[in-house]
Write a protein that binds this DNA or RNA. Structure first.
Length: 523
RNA sequence: GGCCCCGUCGUCUAGCCAGGUUAGGACACAGGCCUUUCAAGCCUGUAACACGGGUUCAAAUCCCGUCGGGGUCACCA
């Protein structure tokens, strides 16, 4: 039975690299008919765990990464919070002590630091002298008489080699001599990550430890712990870490300013900021950061598209398949096709994948996708009425592939605003309505034609306008630009006839009238 | 600095393990087509094996070295 786990620390956000790891664990478990466990690594967290955990759980839910055991769902190995499992760790520490694999150490932090500094000065690797090591109670009593407090350290081997068969990286060797006597328990009895992690993985029956590459060099000490405790060794798979755009260094949420200079990352960010502003969301780097998954949720990306992108972050099936759904992904995924080199975050590719998934949505799916965003800004009621829904449907249909993420619907404000509140872009208005000498008279004539139109559908209107220009020996472009600005206030948008049909005769005429008045009496 | 990992078009990558490809794809870019604007679409094009040795009839692929990048060396996780 395959059991994998994702063990995030409650930090208040879900990092792209983190979910990628979670996804790979999930995929591997699913595809082997196994289980995926979510465990919270809060051994060192002072903050409010529930609050700091919420964004992580929310992100996983949004993406559809479900867990078989863990917070909210419980399970046979509860609790799934490390802070609540301390007795287990302390028992393991006692066992390690009893077996001579660990010792109480009475060194003061500054004494250790002094040894470390000395080693550094002499250019040799630091190896603790074990001067304050207490292996008997008598030694311990002597140190304690000096007012010293003990930590518990691992008594690591000082010779020999550890051979690790990593499912992704192959055979990796480490010299035991390079390893430190790591602390596993603090003076106050609290335990540290490596110990807790090993104990929990064992207790929870984890068979495959799949995690990011930065843990590769931590693995020897973990193996030392588990072997000392007599636990079986799980299989390890170290994923390449997620790197910055165009670089090989680790992606960090704090370097947003730097990434913003990358053309494609910058575009993704600015596009997001525009939507966030329209939504009235805070767009600063703490709240809107493409390194974090909630960025995509807030702006209306499709979870399946994000999953598709994440899967390709360090993994590929072959030389051409890029489009994956949950289903095809579960089927196609395999750990041995995971790349060894760091996977750089490629904003443009994420966007391209999102666009592909969005393009596959049916019209009604798109409407459902976009509706919450319109409700949130109050352009339609919440919940929307039947007629509002029908209206949005016509807008979404005309918008076609211009809606790349759900929040893009907010670009089309002119279709939702009251006619008397429509804002004309001053430059466009001057250039398209005021300056061309024929614009005003033509618009006036066209208004009358439109007023007498019997059927106000896109196709009928197209015929009408074409007939209008042909009769006068004009080209379509000689009237359509002025019409567009008069009706929508700007020069860009979707098909003109679609817009007319969506707005309907009454509103179109009102808008033209308003534009004509404005043009003849510019104030 | 020690240890460990990684180096293919501008970018993300396939190919490497089991040597023989016109080194493939996607995105970006350039040109063209379509066109009422924008978006999309279609066609075409530019463009890469970090470097140096070795093994071999043959090396992106195997071996050695160099250079470059990164990760990690906590009483953080």
């Amino acid at each position: 039975m395959v059991r994998t786990r994702f063990a995030p620390s409650p930090t208040g956000y879900l990092h792209i690299g983190g979910v990628r790891t979670a996804l790979f664990c999930w995929l591997f478990a699913r595809q082997h008919g196994g289980q995926f466990i979510l465990r919270i690594d809060d051994t060192d967290v002072q903050r409010n765990v529930a609050e700091a955990l919420e964004p992580i759980l929310r992100g996983l839910h949004w993406l559809g990464i479900t867990w078989d055991e863990g917070p909210e769902v419980g399970g046979p190995h509860a609790p799934y919070y490390q802070a609540q499992r301390l007795p287990l760790y302390q028992a393991a520490v006692r066992e390690l002590l009893a077996r001579g694999a660990a010792y109480r150490d009475y060194a003061r932090p500054e004494e250790i630091q002094a040894e470390r500094d000395e080693a550094l000065r002499e250019g040799r690797p630091f190896v603790y002298s074990r001067r304050w090591m207490a292996e008997t109670d008598a030694e311990a009593a002597r140190f304690e008489a000096e007012g010293r407090q003990p930590v518990v350290r691992l008594k690591m081997p000082r010779q020999g080699t550890l051979v690790l068969d990593d499912m992704i990286r192959g055979r990796v060797e480490f010299d035991w001599a390079q390893e430190q006597d790591h602390v596993i328990q603090r003076p106050d009895g609290s335990c540290l990550y490596h110990l807790a992690s090993v104990v929990d993985d064992y207790e929870m029956g984890i068979t495959h430890v799949i995690r990011a590459e930065e843990h590769l060099s931590n693995t020897p000490r973990q193996i030392f712990i588990l072997e000392a405790l007599g636990y079986p060794r799980p299989k390890y798979a170290h994923l390449p870490f997620v790197a910055e755009p165009g670089s090989r260094s680790k992606l960090s949420k704090r370097k947003l300013d730097k990434y913003a200079k990358d053309r494609e990352f910058g575009e993704l960010l600015r596009h997001g900021q525009q939507i966030a502003e329209r939504l009235g969301l805070s767009a600063d780097s703490e709240h809107l950061n493409p390194v974090m998954v909630d960025f995509y949720e807030k702006l209306g990306y499709l979870p399946e598209a994000v999953i598709n992108y994440l899967a390709l972050l360090g993994w590929s099936l072959d030389d051409r398949t890029e489009h994956f759904t949950w289903e095809t992904l579960i089927h196609a995924f395999s750990l041995d096709r995971v790349n060894r080199a760091p996977a750089s975050f490629d904003a443009r590719r994420l966007q391209a994948i999102q666009e592909r998934h969005a393009g596959l949505l049916s019209l009604d799916q798109k409407v459902d996708w976009v509706l919450p965003f319109l409700e949130r800004v109050g352009w339609i009621g919440s919940p929307p009425t039947q007629s509002e829904r029908a209206y949005v449907r016509s807008v979404v249909q005309a918008a076609g592939d211009r809606i790349k993420v759900a929040g893009d619907i907010l670009q089309f404000q002119e279709l939702f605003v009251a006619d008397e509140k429509l804002e004309y872009n001053p430059d466009d208005f001057r250039k398209r309505v005021i300056q061309p000498p024929e614009a005003l008279p033509l618009l006036t004539e066209l208004r009358e034609e439109l007023a007498s139109a019997e059927v106000f559908s896109a196709s009928e209107l197209e015929k009408l306008v074409h007939a209008f220009v042909e009769k006068r020996g004009l080209k379509l472009s000689q009237i359509i630009h002025a019409l567009r600005v008069a009706v929508t206030g700007k020069t860009v948008g979707f098909g003109m006839f679609d817009i007319l049909a969506i707005l309907g005769k009454e509103r179109v005429l009102r808008r033209i009238d308003r534009a004509l008045a404005l043009a003849s009496n510019p104030t």
